[in-house]
Amino acid sequence: MTSLFPRGAIRPSSIASTPRQLAIIATHTQPTHRGTAVATPVDDNIQTSRRFSVLNRPPPLYPGHIPLTRLERVSLALGSGILSLRNPYRADLIAACGEALSVPYFIYRLRDAMLSHPVGRRILRDRPKITSTSLSLPHLRSLPPNSLGRTYVNWLDREHVSPDTRLPVRFIDDEECAYVMQRYRESHDFYHSLTGLPTVREGEVALKAFEFANTLLPMTGFACLSVFTMKKQERKRFWEIYGPWAVRNGVNAEEVINVYWEEEMATNVDVLRKRLGIETPPDMRDIRKRERDQRRKEKGEREKMGMGV
């Protein structure tokens, strides 16, 4: 055999054109017994479990990325998970827990769900970011009352929240999956306005249950554990009303991640719900208010009776 490129030579076609490809070749090329440089397959699972020690942490794969070792990832998931159960207002911990738990498999599944859908693909291609400036809130306020945009703004106003409080993704290695996580995070508020669930703990847990049934992200299922930290009344409501609603709707609805919210602002929210297959749950704020009033009334009556005695 007279070959221009003896077996030990690097094949010309393997010369990487981008620094990213170079990095991959460097980490995955290993010599074999016959001297040929044979690259091991770079599939999703292998890429997420690249092995390195804390002493030679590789450079970030995208701005803001922090590569973690396996041990770091596990401890991050456990630590942030336990702490966020104790203090559900720590959005940063919930975010970190969500990222650490999303690999292997789950975030790839969500990305593949997007890649299988024409709109999901368009979102991945355009990579829109949801911020108060990109959405132009004044414009949304001018939309008809039943439109998604108006419902969303009303919800923002009612809950006193802003779309700018979302943290960037840091711990997911694949940059496209990082975007998927980012998109999920930014869509969360739209899930709220689509379902009408409030940002109080009870509403968040119900929505997380819905998200778990819909996106399968482990963090959302993990968050449902906080149902055990809720008050008795709330827990009862979760098991009787919101839990079953969440599972039924989450499973039956389309993948809600594939909604291009920016393009649906003028859409009638009921039409959108119908298209996605989501039914609105009973208004949680109403129920809570009614119960609160009831309690207050009972308390007042008790006090009155006590005074009477």
């Binding site: 076609s13 393997s14 990487a16 990213r20 490809q21 070749i25 044979v38």
Partner: peptide, 9 residues
């Protein structure tokens, strides 16, 4: 652009 495949095999 988003598919870090090996150019090798």
């Amino acid at each position: 652009e988003h598919n870090p495949h090996d150019p090798f095999p």
